[in-house]
């Protein structure tokens, strides 16, 4: 039972991650692969603050989010200056470089990571309490993002993604919108990191490798990019299914790669068979997502 609850907590954390990632790539149209590193920044910041300063968990988590926001603004400001798909490459470099730094510094625990993060909730109700907190924050995230993208601000984001030049020529600063969307998305990822650190009481660089951005991306795509509920569905499916085979009692040397194979096969199947995702009929939301994915890097024609 405890095991299943833990999986549910993990799902809630990934709902936060995939929803915020969806805000950035699905709605904002910003092709980044650095989402795991902002998750890592949140996790490491709150873990270190918790261990060394004994601050309350909530403050640590918020500080982690703040660090993620600041870092994301730095990345956005430098990478978005160059047109085209450059953000993709710049974010890849940012992700790889920063993780390498984390792996090498003493105070981040090197490749072994940080353990003994203070336990904030004790007793038999620990996991259910975390489930409530993480689930609540996940629901809040989904709601908040829906609020942002369905109001006038969302309209601006959509217009910016559709035709950036025409949007700018209406007197809007596209750069500001991009940076804001990017920072909000990455800040939320930072919160997810903080939750992870305090629940599992252990963080290591392996959990934030660039491959995880492919996993998050898949959750978004599988559910339906540019839809509110898509990333939620995606996170549930992609975490639950590979976990299911843990009940088969395979030896660990077979288990890990098997889970990986199941995961990657799922991703490729969905990529080719249902590129528009699981959620909803061909709604406007989904069309929006599709354009975001299918829009090539070609600039302004004619």
């Amino acid at each position: 039972m405890e095991y299943i609850l833990t999986i549910v907590v993990l799902i809630a954390i990934f709902v936060i991650l995939s929803s915020s990632y969806n805000l950035v790539i699905g709605y904002g149209g910003l092709a980044t692969v650095a989402h795991p590193i902002f998750y890592a920044l949140g996790a490491y910041t709150s873990a270190l603050l918790g261990i060394h300063f004994g601050l309350p968990a909530a403050i640590c988590v918020l500080a982690g989010a703040l660090v993620a926001v600041v870092a994301s603004i730095l990345l956005a400001l430098s990478a978005l200056r160059v047109a085209g798909d450059y953000l993709l490459i710049a974010s890849l470099g940012f992700q790889l470089g920063l993780l390498q730094v984390i792996k090498n510094f003493e105070f981040t625990g090197g490749p072994g990571g940080i353990s003994a993060i203070p336990n904030t909730i004790t007793g038999p109700w620990r996991t259910p309490a975390y489930l409530l907190i993480c689930g609540g924050i996940a629901a809040l995230t989904v709601w908040l993002i829906a609020r942002i993208v369905h109001g006038p601000y969302g309209r601006a984001i959509t217009a910016m993604r559709d035709e950036e030049l025409a949007f700018s020529a209406l007197g809007r600063n596209a750069m500001t919108i991009k940076v804001v969307v990017f920072a909000i998305g990455c800040g939320i990822a930072g919160i997810a990191g903080g939750l992870y650190a305090f629940y599992f009481q252990y963080v290591s660089p392996d959990q934030f490798e660039v491959l995880h951005s492919a996993a998050m991306l898949t959750m978004v795509v599988l559910g339906g990019m540019g839809t509110t509920m898509g990333p939620v569905v995606g996170a549930v499916v992609l975490i639950a299914i590979p976990q299911a085979i843990t009940f088969l009692n395979l030896p660990p040397a077979v288990m890990a790669p098997m889970q990986g194979i199941i995961f990657t096969t799922l991703v490729m199947l969905f990529l080719f068979l249902r590129p528009a995702g699981l959620v909803g009929p061909l709604s406007r939301d989904r069309m929006a997502g599709r354009t975001a994915l299918e829009k090539s890097s070609g600039g302004v024609a004619e």
Partner: peptide, 29 residues
């Protein structure tokens, strides 16, 4: 196939990365 669908750069990114990962899992096994 992805090109024919006019997929965006992110799609290609996921596909190539996931394919690499898939091959590597199989080789590990």
């Amino acid at each position: 196939v992805l090109r024919a669908r006019k997929s965006g750069s992110l799609m290609f990114f996921i596909f190539t990365l996931i394919l690499a990962q898939f091959i590597i899992y199989v080789l590990t096994l």
